[in-house]
Amino acid sequence: MREPLTSALTRAARAVTARVEQVLSPEGLTLDQWLVLVALAGERGLTMSDLTARTTASGPTLTRVVDRLVATAVVYREVDPEDRRRVRVYLSPRGRALHKRLATKVDDVEAELLGRSGAKVLDVLHRLGAE
């Protein structure tokens, strides 16, 4: 009998998380912190709402994650110049260097986990996430 999709995806997510955290933990990062760095790496600042959408972290969790990244000078906050009611989060030069240093290692872990069927697996996952 085939394993139900929910069980298989949960098991796979936990396995990927554990492997990626092995790369991140020597740098003192959690997976949630890494997801924030990834979201910010290609942007010129994001609001907390944008980060919530991109990381799927809850509001309170994301606030704690960003607070910790601010405390370690990996990211910084500034008032949005176009809407002073909003705050934007930016990757600092230190954060950009950290992301660059770890991105290749995380990519290697992901490529190893996906193997030769990587593109097909990612297509299915993206399709599931879009629904």
Rank of each mutant, 00 (worst) to 15 (best):
V66D: 01
P26L: 11
L37Q: 00
R77H: 13
L51M: 10
V75Y: 06
A53P: 06
D108N: 08
L29M: 04
A71C: 15
T72F: 03
V70M: 06
R88S: 09
D32A: 07
V38K: 14
P93G: 07
A103E: 11
H99E: 02
L24F: 13
V36G: 03
H99T: 11
D108V: 13
L29W: 01
D83L: 15
Y76C: 04
S58K: 03
V23R: 06
T72C: 06
L35P: 06
V87P: 08
R84G: 12
E21Q: 10
S49L: 11
V109H: 02
E21G: 03
Y76Q: 13
L62M: 07
P26K: 03
R77M: 10
T47Y: 05
L31A: 04
E82D: 07
L24K: 08
D80R: 01
L62I: 01
T56C: 10
Y90N: 02
P93E: 04
V38C: 05
V74W: 06
D107R: 09
V66M: 01
V89I: 06
Y90L: 06
D32R: 14
D80K: 01
R85T: 04
S25K: 05
D67V: 02
Q22W: 08
R101G: 07
G59E: 07
R85C: 15
R68Y: 12
D108W: 09
R77A: 09
V74Q: 07
V70G: 05
E21Y: 00
R101I: 02
V109P: 04
V70F: 08
R88H: 03
T104E: 12
T61Y: 09
D67H: 10
V109F: 11
R44W: 15
L35T: 13
G59Y: 08
R68E: 08
T30P: 12
R54C: 14
R101W: 08
S92P: 03
R68L: 13
D32E: 15
V79F: 09
V66T: 02
M48T: 14
E43V: 09
A53D: 13
R77L: 05
A53M: 14
L31Q: 07
R101Y: 11
E78Q: 13
A73K: 12
T52L: 14
E78V: 10
L46I: 03
T72A: 05
P81T: 00
A41I: 09
D108F: 10
D67P: 11
L98R: 07
G28V: 01
A73V: 01
A39C: 00
R44P: 14
L102H: 04
A103S: 09
V109C: 04
